[in-house]
Amino acid sequence: MSRKRWYWLLVIPAVVPLLVPLYDRVDPTVYGFPFYYWGQLAFVALAMLTMTVVRVLTRRR
């Protein structure tokens, strides 16, 4: 039962990509990419990482 609390971690990737003022900026740029673009692409990694962690922590057996 207590394993279920790990699901709350999923709130992070569900909410962070929606906080537009957080990433609607140019700096810091990486390899020519303004933060607006590489930041949002980085949220992909954030989402995959979070879901994988939750998946492993809540696995049965």
Binding site: P13, P17, Q40, V44, M51
Partner: peptide, 20 residues
């Protein structure tokens, strides 16, 4: 321009919801 990039946050936010 930049507004077209909405597909990226859209296609991220959908997954944690779908996951459960």
């Amino acid at each position: 321009g930049a507004a077209g990039f909405y597909a990226v946050p859209f296609a991220i936010v959908g997954y944690p919801l779908g996951f459960v």
